[in-house]
Design a binder for these strands. Structure first.
Length: 422
RNA sequence: GCGAUUAUCGUAUAACGCUAUUACUCCGGUUUGUGGUACCGGUUAUCUGGGUUCGAUUCCCAGUAGUCGCCCCA
């Protein structure tokens, strides 16, 4: 215990964002919000802490998720709290809380960080950020079309082409009708849905056997398989998307989604490269969720897309810009001697009033080294400050990108920087 | 919770069982006030604990950690 040094690694399954990582993160977030806002969605947020009850009332099906895969603890006031594992219950809570004063249809988005306690692997960490877009009070199928179009447009705005991904759509209400029509017991439907979720991971025989054991009827099982494989559905949503020019869409009767609160449309988008087998985003319609707060049902539809899978996708398809904007300052003031450090700070302070991002190098390295370091950081301009410059009030502005110089007093030089910026 | 796989300077890597390579970074110098090139020099590493062996980075066992997959999916 005495001299044991701490590790510098972050906690399991979470990430540090050094400036170069943060530049990527900001790029992704900026594109997300730009796209969501272009569809008229307004930004909201909430605390990462929620009472655990919020996730429990969705039904016993989620017991495992809440008990085993969430960060849940008792606070000092004996309350059970959970680090939010998803955003949908939160937005349902917020919307239900103001249902009388909000204008519907309501379009909101957020980029929350979410937590899940589980084993980290590709595309899945313990903390991730997720673009969440939701519409409340849009009952018409065109709301479904819009929300999927928004998801689609997000990827397009990153430079993706439609052949890089595939939108898979299913409809729970429709599936219930189809199952019922061929005589499937209603209680068996959710078990079948769950089985379908892993259909592409198990072989045909295993799938068939499990299906038989669910419905207890070989003939019926065969009928179900025939029904599922007949995927020529042209639903309103798919037709509507085609009207908007979105054609990389398939109807997948086996598409499940984990949550029970989805009622009708469910959808996911998959990377077609084969390198990222996790879905890029998923969502659906949940028409009854606000009823856990109130008897008034408000229809909702939305999706979430994670930053981890998003970044994997962008890297796989080489869509990340090579030069991302960093937060490096525009200008650096370099004193030739540490006795002049304060002079440098004074000049910097003045230039900040001109709305220039400026810092100083008050280190002890040699002048040449300071200039090299500044260029490496991505700083564009440098002003060297020595005795001569201060005496003559005549400075040299070095452009580190173009290797050029300009002379003048600080006022004149700041004008050059401001002019070039435009 | 289960399985597979990996663990060497800050990073990335090399090393028939004989105390460790190379590159980049970093620090210093060539250049005591003007950068990105070049040259020279330098600091820094075998995850932890056992075992086999004359001798272990190398082989074996356990632990720990990472990665990938399963489960589950937010």
């Amino acid at each position: 215990m005495t001299d044991k040094k701490l590790k510098t690694e972050p906690y399991k399954g979470v990430r540090d964002f050094y400036p170069e990582d943060m530049a990527i993160q900001r790029y992704i977030f900026d594109m997300w919000s730009k796209t969501a806002e272009s569809f008229g969605y307004e930004r909201y947020d909430a605390s990462i802490l929620e009472p655990s009850d919020l996730y429990k009332s969705k039904g016993a099906e989620n017991a495992e998720i809440i008990n085993d895969q969430s960060y849940t603890f008792i606070d000092r006031g004996e309350r059970e709290v959970t680090l939010r594992p998803e955003m949908t219950p939160t937005i349902a809570r917020m919307v239900a809380g103001r249902r009388r004063e909000l204008k519907f249809p309501l379009r909101w988005y957020s980029i929350p960080n979410l937590f899940r306690y589980e084993r980290p692997q590709r595309g899945r960490l313990r903390e991730h950020w997720q673009l969440n877009c939701d519409m409340f009070g849009g009952d018409d199928y065109s709301a479904d079309v819009e929300i999927i179009a928004l998801a689609y447009q997000t990827l397009i705005n990153f430079g993706a082409t439609p052949d890089m991904f595939e939108i898979q759509v299913n409809d729970r209400a429709l599936m219930t009708r189809l199952y019922t029509a061929i005589g499937v017991n209603e209680s068996a439907i959710s078990a079948i849905t769950k089985l379908n979720d892993k259909r592409n991971k198990i072989d045909t025989e295993t799938y068939r056997n499990e299906l038989v054991s669910i419905v207890n009827d070989e003939t019926l099982a065969e009928e179900i398989i025939i029904m599922l494989d007949k995927s020529d559905e042209q639903t309103d949503v798919i037709v509507g998307l085609a009207e908007l020019g979105i054609n990389n869409v398939v109807f997948n009767k086996s598409l499940a989604r984990g949550f029970d609160y989805y009622t009708d449309t469910v959808f996911e988008i998959f990377d077609k490269s084969g390198e990222n087998n996790r879905s890029l985003l998923g969502g659906g319609r949940y028409d009854n969720l606000t009823q856990m707060f109130d008897n008034d049902p408000i229809s909702g539809i939305g999706f979430g897309m994670g930053d981890v899978t998003m970044r994997d996708f962008l890297e796989t398809h080489k869509l990340l810009p090579s030069h991302l904007k960093t937060t490096a300052p525009t200008l650096i003031i370099i004193p030739t001697d540490s006795a002049l450090n304060l002079e440098a700070q004074k000049i910097a302070q003045f230039l900040r009033s001109r709305d220039i991002r400026v810092t100083t190098d008050i280190g002890t390295k040699k002048l040449g080294k300071k200039i090299t370091d500044a260029a490496d950081r991505g700083v564009i301009y440098a002003i060297i400050v020595g005795e001569n410059e201060i005496k003559s009030n005549h400075f040299t502005l070095k452009n580190l990108e173009h290797n050029s110089e300009e002379n003048g007093n600080i006022d004149e030089l700041s004008t050059i920087i401001i002019t070039n910026k435009k």
